[in-house]
Simulated scan of single mutants.
Amino acid sequence: MLRPVLACCKLYISESRNKAALVSIERAVKLLSGARIINKFEDETYNRVGYTLVSKLPPNFSSGDCSLKDVAFAMVKAALIAVNFNSHSGTHPRLGVVDHICFHPLGIASMEQTTYIARSLAREVGTKLEVPTFLYGAAHEEGRTLDSIRRGLGYFRPNTRGNIWVGGPNSQHLPLSPDEGPSHVDLSKGVVVIGSTRWVDNYNVPIFSTDFSAVRRIAKLVSERGGGLPSVQAMALAHGEGTIEVACNLLEPSKVGGDQVQIEVERLAKEEGMVAGKGYFTDFSEEKIINAFLDYKDSSIDH
């Protein structure tokens, strides 16, 4: 059987409590053809929703015809209309109404193809919607990383007490120059970060504690940055009363997967005198994403 030429777009929006807003965002997908929502992950504590879109790729990118880009743009536009960043709050860091978009090649698709889509979407978001847009991964000429942009824009620092992020940025002036769009930010919209990378898994492990300092130590020690597991990024996030999650990006899940992260977090938590719960993935695996698209029959999937 021939392997498919597919691309995946993971699109994260800073809203999950306003159901009317989500309906309007998802309606944008139904009005266009080609790309499908394969997974939807909502978290009301984080006040964040992640959509996984998949489509076949066109044979000729130079025509500018790409349903995945068109659907992603429509969702971004709908989100900016439906959600006011100044009114948003949650325990997950974010930079804008549409916080993060990443494209991944699937099947026999190439990184060059998803890079083209990412850059094309960034141009449209920046110019047509007038939102400062930053590129990372293969979409950036120098391969800038997602976490370096986030650190430069203050993503990891809560802007209020209680480890909660509330409202938009404090200033219209950005500490970094965007790759597309205006150099100043509309406080009701924030900024968008768009990238193209190989597949990334997201795996979160709950720790039953209120000791943020200790869980931050665990997150640092489990991450490559802190000398822990290679290709793992991690941060500590409040997730309900009495629980803090070690939220991990697995940049090379075929080498270091959720099982290894689970074991290491449990070990580190035990050393701190804490108990770690069973972790969970926020999306399907790459293989399941492909199979779900190929087996897709209905016009919508609810999770």
Rank of each mutant, 00 (worst) to 15 (best):
G242E: 14
D186L: 03
L32C: 04
E241W: 00
L153I: 09
V83G: 15
L2T: 09
N202L: 10
I149A: 06
P4N: 11
A234P: 00
Y155N: 03
D99T: 02
G167V: 04
D186W: 00
I13G: 12
Y46M: 10
S55T: 14
K56I: 02
A236S: 13
T210P: 11
A292W: 03
A7Y: 07
V125G: 01
S177H: 03
A276M: 02
K297H: 05
A219C: 06
G152P: 05
H184V: 15
V192F: 00
V265I: 12
E15T: 04
A28P: 02
A7K: 14
A78K: 04
S62M: 05
L250W: 06
I81R: 15
S110T: 11
A20I: 01
F103I: 08
Y280V: 04
G126E: 13
P182C: 09
G154F: 02
M1K: 04
P59C: 15
T160V: 07
D259Q: 12
S148K: 01
C8D: 12
A138V: 06
I117R: 13
V71S: 06
I37C: 08
I13H: 05
R157F: 07
N249A: 14
R157P: 01
P59E: 15
G162Q: 09
S24Q: 11
V275W: 00
